[in-house]
Nucleic acid binder design. Sequence first.
DNA 1: TGTACATCAGTGAACGCGCGTTCACTGATGTAC
DNA 2: TGTACATCAGTGAACGCGCGTTCACTGATGTAC
Lengths: 199, 199
Amino acid sequence: MRYSAKHKEQTRAKLLKKASKRFREEGLQTTGIAKLMRDMGLTHGGFYGHFRSKNDLVATALKDMFAETTEDLKKAIAGSTPGKEVSAIVNFYLTTKNREHPELSCLLPTLASEIARQPKAVRQVYTRGFAEQIERLTQFMPGASEAAKRQNAHSLMAGMAGTMMFARAVSDRELSDRILAQARHSYISMFESEANKKA
Amino acid sequence: MRYSAKHKEQTRAKLLKKASKRFREEGLQTTGIAKLMRDMGLTHGGFYGHFRSKNDLVATALKDMFAETTEDLKKAIAGSTPGKEVSAIVNFYLTTKNREHPELSCLLPTLASEIARQPKAVRQVYTRGFAEQIERLTQFMPGASEAAKRQNAHSLMAGMAGTMMFARAVSDRELSDRILAQARHSYISMFESEANKKA
DNA sequence: TGTACATCAGTGAACGCGCGTTCACTGATGTAC
DNA sequence: TGTACATCAGTGAACGCGCGTTCACTGATGTAC
């Protein structure tokens, strides 16, 4: 059958969205092309009309996921009191809702360890996205110098990603809730700028 | 052929060691039984004489990995100046050597995200090991109360695991080196107890 | 207005491969007599 | 000392399944005449 002019473009976009969710739910290696296409109502062969390879899809999906998280962070920051951005970020990131929905939240806790085993092209996309995310956080961090601020951004990002990873892996729900709640409190008191803590 | 009395026990122990390395190198799902046995010089069928299932192996290997890291941490702490335990832990954990050898270091940066997708039995083993590791760290952390110390242990553990995960995933070696070096500095100044910082 | 043809998103069989698990078996050795 | 047999760690074919990728194809529609 013939399709409307924009049809292929739309299919590709939907495929990309679905894949970037699936990757975060099930991991990169565990997500299969055939099942992905089946869930789109298509057959596996059609995949290669949209992406050169699974690796190509992984790389493209990573860009998409970083862009999504960037949007979410921007929104969280936009809705916060000036000077309270770190609280906004932490309270947005370390929620039970995000714990339950890896497919809709930051890729770092779910995919970063698997990315270490990916081919260079994929890791480069990751590296760029990661560096940009750190840069975005840096401007809201406390610190005497730009370098100190950036280091705090790294610490916060590593702490939040590690915390979310732990909260998801642990089988005891109450323990998981506590991990998140206490980490929110901790990171806010560590990284909310001094000026605001006194206000 | 008949084997010596201790033979099977030894084979099981070697298999477990090999598996716990392989899991950290390649992930849980990506590590296959057949390849594992082939690398032991055995055939895949023999596996089920040692473990009930792959899940059984995963659970047992996790215990082993936690025990290994516990040993390593104890050694690092034993060799440190009293009051400088946090420095010893951080300087032991966040090294380029550990970055290059996931198969010989802490399971958290490599496996925690995959464990979130494992069956309950596996996650329970993980939860116990994780809680024990936190408890072990707690006693060396600064903090006014036991709860505050434990929270600092959580923050440090999440930060170190997240940092190692990032350092491994990033494709730029210099960036990775910087991530590790600056994180060591950061976490030591954040968590080394106040008394010692002034000394 | 009616016919012929080009387009091209998606189809589905096939490729060689690896997965976890089962199970009847092999064959070297220890033990019993 | 010599023979018969039990033991049991490990073997390897087979199960049904999923993997990523290729490729000749289908068939509805838009376009050209």
